[in-house]
Amino acid sequence: MALNAGLACHGLRFGWPGEQGDDRILLQAVTAWFQPGRVSLVTGATGAGKSTLLHLLGGLLRPVAGEVRAEDQPVSRWPARHRDPWRRRVGMVFQHLALVPDLSVAENLLLPLVPRGMKWSAMQAAITRQLEAVELGQLAAKPVYTLSGGQRQRLAIARALVGAPRFVLADEPTAFQDDRQAARICAQMGAVARTGVVVVIGSHDPRLRNASEVDDRWHLAAGRLTAVGPPQAAP
């Protein structure tokens, strides 16, 4: 595999406004490489900056220093007019989901597809496929506000995947799920990664930490991201 493939960050530094004092910098010098075809898990205590890191990787925030490279392109340095269309290649599962509650389940999945100039039939097929994958096929016409927390989160996952992204950034994707659904989501992420996609999951969910689908493990603490050795391989 080419070394420049996937999603990489070099010396990424970020602090929220008002927290610029040296010790208040959230991410100090984060360097990592998330490879295509593999599921990478970023763990860390709450408040460690997992969500912030995912937003930096997805081009929703700009680093103070360092850069994010996607397939060897310095996307974090791009002006908005190049970066916004690039985001179509990113599927983001937000920790707080960011669904549009008054729209139906299917319409929420339509949103990322509308500006892409796809055929209606292709959009319909993609939406149906993703809803089936997250077991929401029966609820397509329901408004989102009638869904349970777990259903909403699965919808957010479906929305991240519906546009066939090259980079999937999932923030706590199993937070509201029972064990069966959590396992299914792990399997889904693994399957997506097998198609050559970069999958980065930020989570403190122990069910994910021990999942066999996770290929690479990273730990975020005190503003630094360190690679964690593979879990004890099953004997």
Binding site: R81, P85, L111, P112, P115
Partner: peptide, 15 residues
């Protein structure tokens, strides 16, 4: 907020 969601999903300013 809604426009923020859309732009996070790849809607450009032009869109």
């Amino acid at each position: 907020a809604y426009w923020g969601v859309l732009s996070a999903m790849g809607w450009t300013t032009a869109d």
